[in-house]
Design a protein around this nucleic acid. Structure first.
Lengths: 201, 201
DNA sequence: TTGCTTGTTGGACGATTGTATAACAAATGC
DNA sequence: GCATTTGTTATACAATCGTCCAACAAGCAA
């Protein structure tokens, strides 16, 4: 008599990925305080010991989740930009607009972001990861602004301002969705974008 | 022989206030995960049981801390606005500039904000408190924009955008202080403020 | 089939959590 | 000076936390 397997083995990378995704779901559902090792393992359908086997602790898992979510956001923005064609202005506008639509404006992303932010103050390595990831975001904005005619001397400040506006709108859109609509957020961001670009004419 | 008192009694309001302040300090030092009942009681110099005696739980204490910190921020902005004189434009510019200077741009405030945000998703009453407190902030901005000549029809959108920009700059300024300076943040926000106001001429 | 590698399990362990409660003592009125 | 009130302490309690590790078994090689 052959009994059915009690569990399935996975490639290390696959298992890591499934734990990361489970962490994101738990963060979205239970909040940062509910993201314990046992809860994440239960969500992933594995034994609690596996989490410790793949990650140094919950903090490392949250950091990995943040990195993976950031990569997913980056990919979604890439898709939106490419779909906008070749005009630099249209590409930048697509970049901004996509920030307020699914899958970027998503409560699950917000929960991951907040859980990660709560680690930045206390842990230096987490702070470095945040700096690097956010610097990439701004550098990308600065490059697109350059293609729209913003001179190099103004790109840094313009990118910081645009990134802050998009982030602030995105944050409030996720925290209290009833306050304003994604369309209004896009209109606000595009208006400032227009002002920044037209300054140099 | 008279022994010295083992503890001092306080008025309920005074004790509540000291617990709130201790909560803010613990949040800034240990992060959201370290803000336990015992740690806060130790910081306040009282027994652990006293926290439960004054607040329903840590969540309620964090919410009270958020409300008190919000009131302190509001008062600091009031002071800055009044010091700017009577010109509406100067008052609004003072409002924006003060957002990036002490005591508002403060890591302790950031920790309290993040701890509060982490509760918004899971708890409806916390979400309502956030909506109300943020609506007040935007309403204040809208009123000041009105005094600067922004027509009523545009005040709401302009206030949302300005609030998002200030919040985004403030957040990034606290998360990674080395990225840009408070002066640069003020310059960015004032530039958008100028664009919003001059649109109506 | 047999044996080996290693992903995985499941529970033990001490530390820490939030909550509840009885005993205590400081402040106040009489 | 004494009794009352109540703010405060200290502890007990169950639940949950993160960490750890020996035993197990799935999958692969021989």
């Amino acid at each position: 008599m052959t009994s059915k397997p009690a569990f399935r083995r996975s490639e290390p990378d696959v298992r890591r990925q499934s734990l990361i995704e489970a962490c994101g779901r738990v963060l979205a559902r239970e909040g940062a305080s509910g993201a314990s090792v046992r809860m994440i393992a239960l969500e992933a359908g594995v034994s609690p010991g596996l989490v410790s086997h793949y990650f140094a602790g919950v903090d490392a898992l949250v950091a990995a989740t943040y990195a993976q979510v950031g990569a997913r956001v980056s990919a979604a923005l890439d898709t939106a930009v490419e779909a906008a064609g070749s005009d630099p202005r249209a590409r930048l506008e697509a970049f901004v607009t996509a920030s307020f639509m699914p899958p970027i404006a998503d409560p699950e992303l917000l929960a991951t972001w907040i859980a990660f932010w709560s680690l930045v103050t206390a842990r230096a390595d987490i702070a470095r990861q945040h700096d690097a990831q956010y610097a990439d975001f701004r550098a990308r904005l600065a490059a697109m602004l350059g293609e729209c005619g913003v001179p190099a001397a103004r790109q840094r400040i313009a990118a910081i301002g645009l990134a802050a506006l998009v982030d602030g709108l995105w944050l409030e859109l996720c925290l209290s969705p009833g306050c304003f609509t994604p369309t209004e957020a896009s209109a606000i961001a595009l208006a400032q974008l227009g002002a920044v670009i037209s300054t140099n004419r």
